[in-house]
Each structure stands twice: as structure tokens, then as C-alpha cells.
Amino acid sequence: MRPRCHAAFAALALFLTTPASAQGVLTPAQSEAQAAYDRALGNFKSILAERRHQIDTRQPLPNLPGQALYLARVAVISTYKDLTDAMPSRIGKPNKFGIPPAYFDAAIEPLVDEYADIFEIMETPPAGAQDSATPFEDVIDLGAAIARAKGLGPDAAAAAGRISLGLFYAETNGKQNVRNARSNTYMGSLQTGPSEDRNGQRKWEAIKGKVAAIDPALAARDDEEEARSRGTDRRFNHWTNVRDGLMNAHADLFAEIPAIVKTLPDPIEQMKLFELIQIIPTPTRSALSSGDLLNYRVSNPTIMKHLRNNSIFAFGKADRARSSASFREILGAMWLFKRKFDKAMVKYAEIKPR
């Protein structure tokens, strides 16, 4: 990692907070909301600067170096939503991240760019990671091949490949073999833990013969990657991690794709649903089997906590006070995922799947 000069970033950060005095006379509630946002923004800048300094001076990073940074960003978005609830006039222009303007001040876009840059450095793949020269094609091909082995026709299999690419972007923004700055458990292109990786491998072995009959070339590639990953942490072989991640969490529900496509014709909504299979698997399966997916409601406090821990209903007092939500509402609240899924759709359009 090469040190970089961020004097311009530091200078910009000094001027991004809008002074409370510029808003006129504030009520006590408005003053409190403004002060909370100012504190959260100041803390976010401070942690950004600390991590940047540690990286540029090659200092050791703390355990889980991204966690404090992530929580600081959550606090900025949350307190800004509380601020705009108290002062609707503070809702500004759209931002490049696709975050609803009531939750985000577009003036601080450079800070979030810096946040993403720091995370990319902290999650750099380990030296022995086994990259693929065709990472996006691999994800699509594996998703489609698994779907075909599960008995799906060409159109549904193609949808499975597209959905799989969306999951790759949701988990790592389309970067292969990454580590995780917020977890010591979940790693790799599809961010699996050791037990999930083993479970996926076991399930793959059960359908490998069907895959070989359908796509001998893909099966031969799989044999090569199996041999290459032997004796290593297989989560840092792009091919085996994607394959086992899909088999662990998603493959059993590929059979539902024809019905899902009828209910959710928008490909991005399909990607959101399969991401929910990763976040809240049991309620999502129950919703799919209910016959009324979009109106299926969850109210278990633990499930609501899992959603909030994954940036859904996580921002602002009003959202965090929710005790239940329908799947229609959950899908609508997944706006932080949409930009990643948009990137996946662009990439998918560039690729000619087999």
C-alpha cells in the first residue's frame, strides 16, 4: 500500500458541516437534532482520519478495523434522518449513492468516497488468494449451472445466473477474494464462514454429477479449481467460494425462481429477495411459501435486529422504532443495496453468458 496525500480531503472536511446559525432560530428539538448530527459527523471524520493515518503510516490496524467506521457512518445517516424529520427544510438534493435525500446530505459525498476507499484497502485479499481471470462470468455460469442441475429451464437458469451476480456485488461490490474488516468469520467473494463453506461443498458434491452431465466444460473447470484450492483456505479461491456460497444459502430456492419472477418482475427486486435469503433465511422461506410474499409480515424482535444490522430500517429513530414490516416494506427499505445491484445489471449486460 502506498501512502497518499489527503490534504484536500482534510481541508474539505472542515467545511462540510452546515452551521446551526445558518438555519435561523431553532426549537429545542431542532437544536438537539442539529447537535446530534454535528457530533456524529465530527466522529465520522475523526475515525476516517485515524484509519487513513494508520494506513498511510503503515501502523498496525486494530482488530475489526472497519467496525467503528461502519457504526460512525450509520450514526451520520441516522442523525441526519432525525434532523430532517425535525427540520424538513434540511432535505436537500439527490446524491450519487442513491440514498433518499431525507437520510443523507449530498455535501458529504467525499467523506463516503473516502470511507469506501479505506474499506477497500482494509479488505485487500491475502497474498495467497486464488483469483480468477473471469470472476463475473464464473458467478453467472455457476448460478446458471446449479439452477439447471436443479431442473430449471433456460430462462429461469439465466435469471439464477443474473441473481448470483447481484449477490456477488451485494456481498463484496464485485471484488473477489476479499477479507472482511468487520468480521473475523466471513471471508471471500461470497463472504462465507467455515461451516457455511463446508455445507456448500457437501451440497455441491450431491449435484456434481448432474452438473457434469449438463455442462462438462464447467465440471472440468471445477475439478481444476478443486485441485488448486487443496490445502488452502478454500474461501480464498474465487470459484470454490462462490460455488459453495451459492450452494449453502441459495441453491435450494432456485426452484422458486419462476414463481419469484412472476411476483417480482424487476430483476433488482429479485436480487434483493435472494439477499434476504442470506440475511433472514427462515422468514424469507416462510414468506415464499405463504402464497402472499409481499404482504407477509415479520415482527420477531430478533429478525428486526438482523435487518437493522444489515442496513434495513437502521437509520433514524422512526425507522428503528418499527416493530414489524411486510416484505414489500423490507424490499423498499433496501436502498443501500440498490446501487450495487445496478452495477451488477450493468456488468451482466456486458457479459454474454454461456
Rank of each mutant, 00 (worst) to 15 (best):
E32K: 14
Q34G: 02
A36G: 03
A36W: 03
Y37A: 09
Y37V: 09
Y37W: 12
Y37R: 08
D38Y: 00
A40R: 02
A40S: 15
L41S: 10
L41P: 08
G42P: 07
G42H: 11
G42C: 06
G42I: 11
G42L: 07
G42A: 12
G42T: 13
N43Y: 04
F44C: 09
K45A: 06
S46C: 03
I47C: 04
I47M: 05
L48I: 08
R51M: 09
R51N: 07
R52Y: 02
H53I: 09
Q54W: 04
Q54E: 07
Q54I: 01
I55N: 04
T57Q: 14
R58A: 12
R58S: 10
P60K: 15
P60C: 11
P60N: 15
P60W: 05
P62F: 04
N63A: 03
L64K: 13
A68Q: 10
A68T: 10
L69R: 03
A72Q: 03
R73A: 12
V74R: 07
V74L: 09
A75K: 08
A75T: 07
V76L: 01
I77V: 13
S78I: 07
S78D: 06
T79M: 04
T79L: 02
T79A: 06
Y80S: 08
Y80E: 09
D82R: 07
D82E: 10
T84Q: 09
M87T: 10
P88Y: 06
S89E: 15
S89W: 03
R90M: 12
R90K: 09
R90W: 06
R90E: 11
R90T: 08
I91F: 01
I91L: 10
G92L: 10
K93D: 14
K93E: 15
K93G: 14
P94R: 02
P94K: 02
P94V: 03
N95K: 05
F97K: 00
P100G: 03
P101C: 06
P101G: 10
A102I: 08
A102R: 14
Y103N: 04
F104A: 08
F104W: 12
D105I: 14
A106V: 15
A106Q: 14
A107Y: 02
A107E: 09
I108T: 05
I108A: 01
I108H: 00
P110C: 00
L111G: 04
L111Q: 08
V112R: 02
V112H: 03
D113W: 02
E114V: 00
E114S: 01
E114G: 00
E114Y: 00
I118N: 00
I118C: 00
I118Q: 01
F119T: 01
F119N: 02
E120L: 07
I121F: 11
M122S: 00
M122G: 01
T124C: 04
P125N: 04
P126Y: 04
P126N: 05
A127F: 10
G128I: 03
A129V: 10
A129F: 09
A129Q: 10
Q130I: 15
Q130T: 11
Q130Y: 02
S132T: 14
T134M: 13
P135N: 11
F136S: 15
F136G: 05
F136E: 15
F136H: 15
E137I: 13
D138V: 14
I140K: 15
I140D: 12
